[in-house]
């Protein structure tokens, strides 16, 4: 009675071990869980599940190639269209990878924005210090990767101005963002320096409300919504692509419009 049971236990362990070995890298795991299935095409072509991994890798390679094409296409002098206040979408939609109830609660009085990486001055910034910098405002169209769009009004510090204040290496490739809601993303330096890219502190003339990213968000009119991080806690400059929450699951990294 006990012997077969023991063999069974050993088999189970072996199965688990094999399964663990077969597990992909953590960064790829989420991507696979989301099931980039061949969908209907597998019915048409008779592709088996075993082919899916290589198909995914091929598609990701094309996506990386598309990043390069978009970087080449990107012209920093092309400005996103701006609109009159009357065209602002009301109410402006709340959008995140969680519900309204999970919006992070942040104490603005004690808040410190961390700055790191390839920058000369790594001292953290209080909100008062950021508000003391020159402020601009824009009414632009936020375009979501899902397809919908909404026009909003953001105010804050031109991001190029902020990068100059922290003595960022402007020849570096990437700017990364870490957020209070565990979101993270990164953008290319040319897009970071585009005139409309803004470290936003207000929405429609009011202090940025929690649902739109208090205490600050990056408003980047030349990129899709998922490249506009909210509740930013840390900004760093780097030459190693930091990826992003959605990007690591398969969304195109450049995400430019």
């Amino acid at each position: 009675m006990f012997k077969p049971k023991k063999i069974q236990t050993l088999d189970e362990q072996a199965i688990v071990k094999t399964a663990l070995q077969a597990m992909p890298q953590p960064s790829r795991r989420l991507f696979l869980q989301r099931g980039l299935s061949l969908g209907g095409l597998s019915l048409l072509t008779g592709c088996t599940l075993a082919d899916e991994d290589s198909v995914e890798r091929a598609l990701m390679r094309v996506s990386t190639f598309n990043d390069k094409v978009q970087a080449w296409l990107f012209n920093p002098n092309k400005l996103a269209p701006t609109y009159p206040d009357s065209m602002i979408t009301r109410p402006f939609p709340f959008n995140a990878f969680y519900g309204v109830e999970d919006i992070p609660k942040i104490n603005g009085d004690s808040f410190q924005l961390e700055v790191g990486g390839l920058v000369a001055n790594k001292r953290p910034w209080s909100l008062a210090q950021l508000h003391a910098l020159p402020q601009v405002s824009q009414v632009t169209r936020h375009i979501c990767v899902e397809g919908w769009s909404a026009i909003g009004k953001w105010g804050g510090v031109p991001f190029a101005t902020f990068l100059q204040h922290i003595g960022a290496d402007l020849t570096a490739k990437y700017v990364g963002f870490k957020c209070a809601d565990d979101y993270y993303t990164s953008i290319d330096m040319p897009s970071a320096l585009q005139a409309q890219t803004q470290l936003s502190l207000t929405y429609d003339g009011q202090i940025l409300p929690p649902e739109y990213g208090y205490p600050m968000k990056l408003r980047i009119a030349t990129k899709l919504g998922y490249k506009n991080p909210k509740h930013i806690q840390a900004i760093y400059v780097t030459n190693v692509n930091p990826g992003g929450y959605w990007e690591d699951q398969g969304y195109n990294w450049f995400g430019g419009s």
Binding site: F31, R34, S37, G39, G250, Y251, N252
Partner: peptide
């Protein structure tokens, strides 16, 4: 449809 989820379909 093809792609399994939005990210896959976009790829």
């Amino acid at each position: 449809t093809l792609g399994g989820w939005l990210g896959g379909a976009l790829l």
